[in-house]
Deep mutational scan, measured.
Amino acid sequence: HNGKLCKLKGIAPLQLGKCNITGWLLGNPECDSLLPARSWSYIVETPNSENGACYPGDLIDYEELREQLSSVSSLERFEIFPKESSWPNHTFNGVTVSCSHRGKSSFYRNLLWLTKKGDSYPKLTNSYVNNKGKEVLVLWGVHHPSSSDEQQSLYSNGNAYVSVASSNYNRRFTPEIAARPKVRDQHGRMNYYWTLLEPGDTIIFEATGNLIAPWYAFALSRGFESGIITSNASMHECNTKCQTPQGAINSNLPFQNIHPVTIGECPKYVRSTKLRMVTGLRNIPSIQYRGLFGAIAGFIEGGWTGMIDGWYGYHHQNEQGSGYAADQKSTQNAINGITNKVNSVIEKMNTQFTAVGKEFNNLEKRMENLNKKVDDGFLDIWTYNAELLVLLENERTLDFHDLNVKNLYEKVKSQLKNNAKEIGNGCFEFYHKCDNECMESVRNGTYDYPKYSEESKLNREKIDGVKLESMGVYQILAIYSTVASSLVLLVSLGAISFWMCSNGSLQCRICI
């Protein structure tokens, strides 16, 4: 991952900044910058967002509201009850120091605090018919004063009620008058409520006091790749198909172990950190130390980045220098085999997901714990399936590479015959000098055995068991695999060879 928040398929997220979902939807004055928000790819909250409900109280069923919003990608904020005409018999300019803005008392931008007009609070009834052709999110509140005197001074009615009804919602609220500790300079409380109004449905408000009335509502448009994440990451000019709280993932790998919460087309989250597919040879310690064997393909974004291909070729060293050249036929066979294998694994496992966190309130801790156990169970199954699949494929890959290298080895052996000696570690020792032209003939299969047989015969008789390297004779190393990324691999195959001279070296080696 890149540690950044990015656009998702070209669409920017909605960053709530210092506000949370509650503050944004109710219209906390400190969240005025969010009022123009219309569309987004996903919503970003920060872990310690401080601006929620400015007048103390709870947004009821907040967790369910977050779940609903996680599939919303755009909205239209509109005046559901026009301020100047909807409440002619009531005062609608209630403000509070708890919702101060720029040093002055204020109130929510989407709600109206209705109080008595003169000395009376006549029963009010108002309704709205949803003609938007889509779901409408309606929010309101109920004020709970701290004393009967406060109730009387604001609403005149000691036994007030609030009723809200639609086809799918029907509740009646009565204020709970009680002494409470002071929070944000208030002994009173406000509880906030919401409902989704279906197209064509009607919502009716009736009250004799204590109503925090809707002013603006939201017509919602769903987008199934949307979601809500909690993150401290910063926004950058970048684009992605998959976003996590820790950063964007741009990967076609089937798995990731970065974060379980994802938005967009994302690899499946697994616990494993070692889900690797081999593309090189079986481990040979001396070669492995030099980083030549054991190439791997990573299938977990965050564990290993991208696929690494092994390729086969020849390396030689003689009086004229040293050089490398790919054996294109065996390399292409290996590439085709690995590509098919990788595609097979991805096809089997690479279903892209959006995974969002589930919200539970403080009273639902047991449910949250149960949900976590269920999620953990599914996660263990996914991890096991992934590891088992790759384990089985790896064994076949190792066998496949062994065969490829063996074929190259036999190709060289059949040409050199007794003009060189096998020394048991995949290397041959020449009994004759071999210049670049000679080396090329070994690589392309045109090695002239009779041409060098007499010199080889004489050297075999002279050496008589002495280690060949100390006599200045020449080696050919018969097994060799270097490691390159897919891009470098293609470039390498396009070149005939490249040279690395070893000044004054008397050794001649050709490596497979």
Results as ranks from 00 to 15, higher is better:
S231W: 07
N232D: 11
N232R: 11
A233Q: 10
S234M: 04
M235W: 03
H236G: 13
E237T: 13
E237P: 15
C238R: 01
N239D: 15
N239T: 15
T240F: 02
K241D: 01
Q243N: 10
Q243Y: 06
Q243S: 07
T244C: 07
I249F: 06
I249Y: 12
N250Y: 11
S251P: 06
S251E: 08
N252R: 12
L253M: 05
P254A: 07
P254V: 07
F255D: 02
Q256W: 01
P260S: 01
V261Q: 12
T262W: 01
I263Y: 04
I263E: 02
P267S: 01
K268V: 12
K268Q: 09
Y269K: 03
R271K: 15
R271C: 02
S272C: 12
K274Q: 13
V278D: 03
G280T: 07
G280S: 02
L281G: 01
I284E: 12
P285T: 00
P285Q: 04
S286V: 12
Q288D: 08
R290L: 01
R290V: 00
G291C: 08
G291E: 12
L292M: 15
G294H: 14
A295M: 15
I296T: 03
I296Y: 02
G298M: 07
I300H: 03
I300N: 01
I300C: 04
E301C: 07
T305P: 15
G306S: 11
G306E: 13
M307L: 15
M307R: 01
M307H: 04
G310C: 00
G310S: 08
W311H: 03
G313F: 07
G313D: 09
G313N: 10
N318A: 04
E319D: 15
Q320L: 13
Q320H: 02
G321N: 12
S322T: 11
G323E: 06
A325W: 03
A326R: 06
A326F: 04
S330W: 00
T331W: 02
Q332K: 05
Q332N: 08
Q332V: 04
N333V: 10
N333R: 14
N333F: 10
I335K: 00
N336M: 03
G337K: 15
I338P: 03
I338K: 10
T339I: 09
N340A: 03
K341P: 00
K341L: 07
K341E: 10
V342I: 15
N343F: 03
N343G: 02
N343K: 09
I346S: 03
E347M: 11
E347N: 12
K348S: 09
M349E: 00
N350K: 10
N350F: 05
T351H: 11
Q352K: 08
A355Q: 14
V356Q: 15
V356L: 12
K358I: 11
K358F: 09
E359R: 10
N361F: 02
N361L: 00
L363C: 01
E368D: 10
N369F: 08
L370V: 12
K372R: 15
K373M: 11
K373I: 07
K373E: 10
V374N: 02
D375E: 14
D376N: 14
D376K: 07
D380W: 09
W382P: 12
W382S: 04
T383P: 03
Y384F: 11
Y384C: 10
Y384G: 06
Y384M: 11
N385P: 03
A386C: 09
A386E: 13
E387V: 04
E387L: 03
E387Q: 13
L388H: 11
L388A: 01
L388W: 13
V390D: 05
V390F: 11
L391K: 04
L392G: 01
E393D: 13
E393L: 01
N394T: 05
N394K: 13
N394G: 12
E395M: 07
R396G: 08
R396F: 04
T397G: 04
T397H: 10
L398W: 08
L398N: 14
D399C: 04
F400Y: 12
D402F: 06
D402C: 02
V405D: 05
K406P: 14
K406A: 03
L408V: 06
L408Q: 10
E410F: 09
K411D: 06
K411R: 14
V412T: 15
K413W: 09
S414D: 11
L416N: 07
K417F: 13
N419P: 06
A420M: 07
K421Q: 12
I423A: 08
G424D: 09
N425R: 12
C427Y: 11
E429T: 13
C434Y: 05
C438Y: 09
S441Q: 09
V442D: 03
V442Y: 11
G445R: 12
T446Y: 06
D448T: 05
D448G: 01
Y449N: 12
Y449T: 12
P450D: 09
K451G: 13
K451H: 10
Y452T: 14
S453N: 11
E454R: 13
E454P: 09
S456K: 08
S456C: 12
K457N: 13
L458Y: 08
R460W: 15
E461A: 00
K462S: 07
D464E: 07
G465W: 13
V466E: 08
K467V: 11
L468G: 00
E469H: 08
S470G: 08
S470P: 13
M471D: 02
M471E: 11
G472H: 12
V473C: 07
Y474V: 14
L477N: 01
A478C: 14
A478F: 03
I479N: 06
Y480D: 10
S481Q: 14
S481C: 09
S481L: 14
V483P: 00
V483Q: 00
A484R: 00
A484W: 01
L487Y: 03
L487G: 08
V488H: 04
L490N: 09
V491G: 11
S492K: 01
L493N: 00
A495E: 08
A495Y: 12
I496W: 02
S497K: 00
F498V: 15
W499G: 12
W499A: 10
M500Y: 00
N503W: 10
L506Q: 15
L506C: 14
Q507K: 11
Q507D: 03
Q507T: 09
I510E: 12
